[in-house]
Simulated assay, not measured.
Amino acid sequence: MADAESRPTRPSGVIATKSKAATVAAAAADICDQLPGDGLAMVLIFLSPHYDPHDFIAAITARLPGIPVYGCTTAGELSPDGWEDNSVVALAFAADDFTVVTQPIFGLSGFRVDEGRRLGNELRQELLRHGGVDEGVFGLVLIDGMCQREEAIMSAIHASLDNIPLVGGSAGDGLRFERTWVFHDGKAHTDAALLILIRTSLPFRPFKCDNFEPTATKMVVTEADLEQRIVKQLNAEPAAEEYCRAVGIADSELDPFLFAAHPVLVRVGGSYFARSIQRVSPDGSLRFFCAIDEGMVLTAARSRNSVAAAREMLAEVRDDLGEVSIFIGFECILRRLDAEQHQFAREMSELYRDNRIVGFHTYGEQYGSMHVNQTLTGVAIGKRQGSPR
């Protein structure tokens, strides 16, 4: 825990902290003791369901008067020390480097596309009033991970923001898949999303990383419950049986670890995106994390080395951006499960620690207008030219 007298008074860039204190009160105090007393544009909180979300957001908001606090619950945390569980991670954005405007979206179960476009446009206009141009702007989106409306929300918001890049994640609930929470105005909200637009003079670049390649094996969704994201039949056969045949496994093996190792892909605009399965139902149907549709063609995926793919992405970003101060990351929980199952979780965690990839494990990732699975998305923040290393 940092001495309050040693806090920096004029912060710069993004400050990343974490706490594993046992109680809400202790964790909120620990986080705040590591942050500067003022000069912050906002604080983002990524909170394990180990803590009560209502009590935590109330406690930390009370300790940070005048500083906007946002965030969500997680399925695991990407901390400054690598992958964590049962922790809270905080990202504090310095007011000297960032201008922030936000818009909550409540009642996602009744979400209308025209309303999403209106809210996105209004927020963009508010940011323009703070600075005048769209240059140097990116957006973060945090969404209730159980809402099953991510595709409609992202499509509507993206359409209203012109060329402003968007990244984000769907809030998590460990591996319980019961209820997730988004934080705004000192309260925890379910059935809600948060759009945050950020202008910065620092260099930045959105990124996306996965480790799957398409094979020649195809499956067509021939019967589905679209609202519930449930596939009942693939290729006119029971969904679980046909999926197992296509990826070459026994149906007795179906569990979250196997789904993590064998996602399916959809092709959109010439690129492939992962569509991951959440669970198998007793009737042999498959519930997905992302929207599905009858007639959708699913491609069985081939896995490549996750660590190598992440290293390639990090090198590409640095080649483009120069020195990076932090990677703000939103990573599918299935990537972590796959790493744990195949015993390279420690190597991935150390890679994230060494490269300052900080954020949370999600129930889905946002990138541009897309809601995807089994992916690491985010934004890399560079350093100001001439700043000390």
Score class of each variant (00 low, 15 high):
A2L: 15
A4W: 14
E5D: 11
P11I: 09
V14W: 08
V14H: 09
A16I: 03
D33Q: 12
L35Y: 09
G37N: 10
L40T: 05
F46H: 08
F46N: 02
P49F: 11
H54M: 07
I57P: 10
I57A: 00
A58G: 12
P65H: 04
V69A: 01
T73I: 06
T74H: 02
E77Q: 04
D81C: 11
D85C: 08
A92S: 13
A95R: 14
T99N: 07
T102W: 03
G110M: 06
V113T: 10
E115A: 13
R118D: 08
R118I: 02
H130F: 08
H130A: 11
G132Y: 13
V133P: 00
E135P: 02
E135R: 11
G136T: 04
F138Q: 02
G139Y: 06
G145D: 02
G145C: 05
C147Y: 04
M154D: 09
H158W: 08
H158V: 02
L161R: 04
N163C: 12
P165M: 00
G168P: 03
S170H: 03
G172Q: 09
D173R: 06
E178H: 13
T180M: 03
W181G: 01
K187Y: 07
D191H: 08
L194I: 01
I196H: 05
I198G: 01
I198V: 15
F204W: 06
T217P: 01
V221F: 06
A224S: 15
D225C: 09
Q228K: 15
Q233M: 09
E242W: 04
C244M: 10
I249F: 11
P263L: 00
G270S: 10
A274I: 09
I277D: 09
S285E: 03
L286D: 12
L286I: 07
C290S: 14
D293Q: 15
D293T: 13
E294H: 04
E312R: 14
E316M: 11
D319G: 15
E323T: 10
V324P: 08
G329R: 00
C332A: 09
I333Q: 05
L334F: 14
R336W: 08
A345Q: 11
E350Y: 07
D354N: 14
G359F: 00
F360R: 01
H361C: 08
H361L: 10
Y363G: 03
G364S: 02
V372I: 15
V379T: 03
V379M: 00
G382M: 08
R384E: 12
P388V: 13
